[in-house]
Structure formats: C-alpha cells, structure tokens
C-alpha cells in the first residue's frame, strides 16, 4: 500500500464516526430538536458495542447492541424533552454527563481487554483497480453504511414525503400540528434515528478505529459532530464534505506528531478543536445561508393545546 493510500484510508477511518454521528443529528435538528447528547449516546454505543462483541465474540452483535444502546439513550432524551418538556440544552448535557459516567461504570471490567475487530469487506476484482481500488472497494462495512446513510438522508429529506414532513415539523411545529401531523411522534422517530447513528459511531470507535475499550474514548467527537451539523447548514452533502475535512485535520495532527517535526504534541492534538471553532466562524460569515436553512423551531418544545 502506498503512503498516499494509507493516509487516505486513515482519514476515512477517522471521518466515519463523525459522519455517522452527524448525519443522525442532522435529521434530528431538521425536525426541530437540538440533541446535545451525541457524546453521551456515542460513548454508550462504544462501550456496549465492545462489551457485546467481547462476550459473544461476534462484532456484528456488538454493532447491533451499540445501535440499541444509542437508541435507548436517545429515548431517554426524547422522554424528557418531548414528553416532559424539559430544556433541550440542559437535557442534552445531562445525557452526555450520564453517558460518560455510565459507560465508565459498565466498561470498568473491560479496560485493557483485546477487542474484536470488524473486518473489511473487499469486493473481489475491484480492489485491484489502480489508485482507487483499495480505497473504495476494501473498506469496513460501516464505512459503506455511513455513505449509504448520507445518500439516503439526502434523498429522503429532499425528495420524499417523509422528508417534507420532517422539514415541516422542524420549521413550524404549530402549523404542522394544525395540519394534523403528529409533531411529537415525528420528533421521537428522528431522535431515535439520531440515537441509532450515534450508537453506530460509538461502535465504530470501539470495534474498528481502536478495537478496545478506553474510558471517554469519544474524546469530544460528539461535540465536533454537532459543530459539523451547524457547519453543513443542515445539508447532507456539505456535512459529508465537512466530516472528511475534519477527519483529515485529525489525521494531519497525528502524522505530524509521528514525524516529530518539533511542534509540541499537545498543540497538534488540539488542531481538531481549533479547526472546529474556525469552521464555525467561517460558516457564520454567510449568515443568510445559515438563517434560511436553520429549522425555525430548533430547540423549542411543543405542547399542543388540548
């Protein structure tokens, strides 16, 4: 494998968890809900994914468990914000704090154990294509899934009735309710989808990226995913571009450290966080774009009159 292929491969690996978590959050926010708990759902996915695959020996059962854990955590968020009308920002923070704690507790017995790696799927014959062969046709299944999910979300939001309803609910929940749409149900469904993809993102970390359980192994990726959604102005294509860009920055820092070019390692490690802030500033300069695409009822609870 050439150095260029290796770098691109690691970039894809670093970007995939961001893309997975962010594409779910994009749908959640399009429906008008701000779930700041991605970090918590992700880390819950990571630990349950690792635990389940370690116990059963099957990485696929691990993935399934991670998805379920993500959905379960997101439903807790849904229960509070959609049924009990709590503040979404505070509840998202609670999810993150709880998730980090609970995952540590669950994972305390798994620290240092060898993990089960999800193996790549190579498509025979095509992997030998020059330049792109191994990059496109020799990836792990979750990479393909992340791409399929992104394309699917883009298509559904833009071209289907389900997508239209999600956008409508996110823009004006009073109108959607008046037209007879079940605002809360739609939002629950979107929150569950967001939980599922966050769980997947967590599973990617503990089953593919570094197949083991490390406490707080999400390292702020959930928050970066949130920033990516803002950066994308709620458009899936921009989201994917942003995710790969960020994966690139992440890997750049690691490579630079490895080469020992005399810049303190900590400075390079902080690159993704600095880049996130810069990206948010850059995107905010085009305020019109952000304002028009922003789901107008983002973060507001909805209580119907009865």
């Amino acid at each position: 494998m050439s150095a260029y292929e290796a770098i691109i491969l690691t970039i894809i690996t670093a970007s995939t968890p961001l893309l997975l978590a962010a594409i779910g959050e994009l749908v959640v926010e399009r429906s008008g809900v701000l779930n700041l708990g991605i970090e918590g759902m992700m880390v819950m996915g990571a630990v349950t994914g690792f635990a389940a695959s370690y116990v059963t020996g099957s990485p696929w059962l691990g993935v399934l468990a991670a998805v379920l854990a993500g959905v379960a955590t997101s439903m807790l968020f849904g229960l509070l914000t959609q049924t009990l009308m709590t503040n979404q920002v505070a509840t998202g923070l609670a999810i993150t704090l709880l998730g980090l704690g609970l995952s540590g507790l669950i994972g305390s017995g798994f620290v240092g154990l060898p993990g089960v790696k999800l193996t790549s799927v190579s498509i025979t014959g095509l992997t030998d294509l020059p330049y792109v062969g191994r990059l496109v046709f020799d990836q792990d299944p979750l990479v393909y899934l992340s791409v399929i999910l992104t394309l699917g979300v883009a298509y559904i939001l833009k071209h289907t009735r389900v997508g239209l309803i999600i956008r409508a609910v996110g823009q004006n929940h009073h109108s959607a309710h008046a037209l007879g749409y079940r605002v809360v149900t739609v939002r629950y469904a979107c929150i569950a989808f967001g939980g599922a993809t966050s769980g997947l993102a967590g599973a990617y970390l503990s089953l593919v990226y570094t197949p083991q359980w490390i406490e707080n192994m999400t390292a702020g990726r959930g928050w970066i995913a949130l920033a990516l959604v803002v950066f994308s102005t709620w458009l899936p294509a921009r989201l994917a571009a942003g995710a790969y860009l960020f994966g690139g920055v992440w890997i750049l820092g690691l490579y630079a450290q490895g080469m020992g070019i005399g810049i303190p390692a900590q400075l390079l490690s902080s690159l993704p966080y600095v880049a996130t802030i810069l990206a948010l500033v850059i995107i905010s300069t085009n305020r019109r774009l952000s304002v028009i695409n922003t789901p107008a009822s983002l973060g507001q609870g909805f209580v119907p009159d009865r």
Binding site: A90, L97, L100, G101, L102, G104, S108
Partner: peptide, 17 residues
Amino acid sequence: SDKTTQVFQGMLLFFIL
C-alpha cells in the same frame, strides 16, 4: 468503580430536569 460518582451526578441532573 469511582465512576458511580459521575453516574450519580448525571442521574441527579436528569431527575432535576
């Protein structure tokens, strides 16, 4: 595990909300 502290704290915020 001392992680229970963080779990307690997270649950507390949950129940307050």
